[in-house]
Structures are given as C-alpha cells and as structure tokens.
Amino acid sequence: MTRVHDMGGRYGDGTITPEPEDEVFHTDWHARALAVTLAAGSLGKWNIDVSRHARECLAPTDYARFSYYEKWISGLANLLVETGVVTREELAGQGDPAPSPLADKKMTADQVAGVLAKGGPADRPSNTAPQFDVGDVVVTRKIAANALVDGGHTRLPVYAAGARGRVLRLHGTHVLPDSSAHRLGDAAEPLYAVVFPASELWSHPEHPRDEVVLDLWQSYLEPEA
C-alpha cells in the first residue's frame, strides 16, 4: 500500500549537511537533468502528477540508490517510453532516431522565460462544495491509499493516516492528484491545510505544543466521529 518515496517520520537517515546558498547545481549534469526534464514536460504528454508518480514507481532499490536527479532522469526515460515519445530501441541507442511528430511543440530558447513565468496553476472550478469550515475537527483516511486505483498515486503520507486534526484554512478547489496522475481527469475538490498535534502522529514528540500541517483534499478527510 505504500511506496518508497513516502518517508516522512522514518528512522535511520542520519545527519543533514547544510550547504551554501550560491551553490545552485553541484555539477553540470544536475543542471542538464533539470533542464531536460522541464523541456520534455513542455511537450504536453503528461502532467505534474503523472511525472511524480513515474518517479515514485521506480523500484525501491533504484529509488534508494539513485541520487535526486538520477530519479528525475530515470522517471523521465520511463515516461518517454510509456507515452510512445521514444522507443526502447532509441533509448538503447540502436539505429537512427526517428523524427518526432511532436517536434512542433519543442520549447525554444525565446519561449523559456514565458513558460516559466506562466507556471501551471492547480486550482480549478469544482461542483464539490466545501464540507468543512476553519476550526472543524477532521480525521484522515485510515489507510493512506489511492481510492480510485490500487497502488496509485496519492498525497496523503502514511505517517498522517488515520490522524485527527483541525482545519486551518481552505485553499480553494484544486486538481485531485489521485485522479490526475492516472489520466482520469482533474476531479477538482476542496483542498485544506489541516494541522495535527505532533502527539497525534509520533510516539515521542519533541515538544508538547509542536504541530505538523499538511495540505489535504476533502476526499481524504472525514468529520470527527
């Protein structure tokens, strides 16, 4: 029911190493990996939820051994084959690559600034009315799984499953990743920031008043019993 990327609260990861602010990319290929991924995304063959799910579906052994941008480039390679944009033979470097019918969608250098400035907002109109008000007590799904697709993408982390929290704010209605990641439509619904006492999530919270906030879709939540 869970995947390797869902690591919030996990033990055993060791210390964190701060780094200077002016070090944007550690090596040239990191920068190249990011740019190739962004440019390929602009071809319009997948959305952000599909691409996140592609990275999450890497084998746990690969996910754990790959560095960050290796995950990106490997998820991208898998997506390119799955969507038919490139063939396995082309990826393996066999023969001459065929020109793509998508070539007219190629992002050119003069389009980059506009594409980055435009972004990709996730708010959409929805027929689903907000069920909760700020201050309401809610309980998250007992099992942090996609309700539409077995083993599918979801944004409810395991550590926050079955937890009781309080609605802090309503963000409006947003694309539901559980649907969008599987090309089942935007299925927009109300999105809330929900605050949980650390003691609701962890057996040994560091401080009695610590809290964790998650952004959660309405279908992840039930009213307090």
Binding site: A39, V86, A109
Partner: peptide, 14 residues
Amino acid sequence: RKGLIDPAALDEII
C-alpha cells in the same frame, strides 16, 4: 535528434 528539445532552451533554463 528527434527534434523534441532545443539545447539552447536548456541553457536558458539553467
């Protein structure tokens, strides 16, 4: 080579 990305656009993103 497939005509799907422009290396100059990658330079611009970076």
